[in-house]
């Protein structure tokens, strides 16, 4: 399996939401909808504070419950990788995948009715380009690459830095990593 991962450095992420913006433009996401979002977490009490920003999206799980839940095979792994996409020509809009996603990363595209989500910009990845969010990040806080390759920047970053994923206890094996 071609194993793609996104690595986001919370140390340098400034929460500017450019990733959300670039995603919406690149993918022609309809107005009012989004495939990714930025979470800001503040802990502590004034003046002893810590704020962390996290750009979140579909985790393109290695064990994707949405793909498992899809009755028609519309939700699928792209081209033998872990990139989860929805083939709109097969999608019935039954929404089982929305219920199955622990990250609430899916949405109904209206009026077409198929289920939309982050695709890791597979139309760019097929040519070896980074997803639009990664490519735009003005803080250079986002990285994308192959986990199969130990020399890729994502593999090296994960080897060097402490990191975490969101809700690994779901068993979904998410592939968006956050560097501490």
């Amino acid at each position: 399996m071609t194993h793609y991962a996104m690595v986001i450095d919370t140390r340098t992420c400034i929460g500017c939401t450019d990733c959300v913006d670039a995603c919406r433009m690149e993918n022609n996401v309809p107005e009012g909808l989004c495939y990714d979002w930025v979470v800001e977490v503040t802990t502590g009490r004034y003046p002893d504070l810590k704020t962390e920003f996290r750009s979140e999206r579909c985790n393109h799980c290695s064990h994707a419950t949405c793909v498992e839940a899809c009755p028609t095979g519309a939700s699928q792994y792209w081209n033998g990788s872990n990139i989860v996409v929805v083939d709109a020509t097969k999608c019935t809009g039954c929404k089982a995948c929305i219920a199955a996603c622990p990250y609430d990363a899916r949405l109904i595209m209206q009026p077409q009715g198929y289920i939309g989500k982050c695709t890791f910009c597979v139309q760019r990845v097929q040519y070896g380009m980074d997803p639009a969010c990664v490519a735009v990040c003005p803080a250079h806080a986002m990285h994308f690459g192959l986990l199969d390759d130990p020399t890729s920047n994502v593999s090296m970053l994960l080897a060097e830095r402490k990191n975490y994923t969101l809700h690994p206890e779901t068993g979904n094996q998410p592939n968006v990593f956050y560097l501490r």
Binding site: G15, C34, W37, E40, V41, T42, T43, F53, I108
Partner: peptide, 15 residues
Amino acid sequence: MREEVLASVLANPRV
């Protein structure tokens, strides 16, 4: 204290 908010707006209908 823990404050968790969205820096962007997430308003996907029915999600």
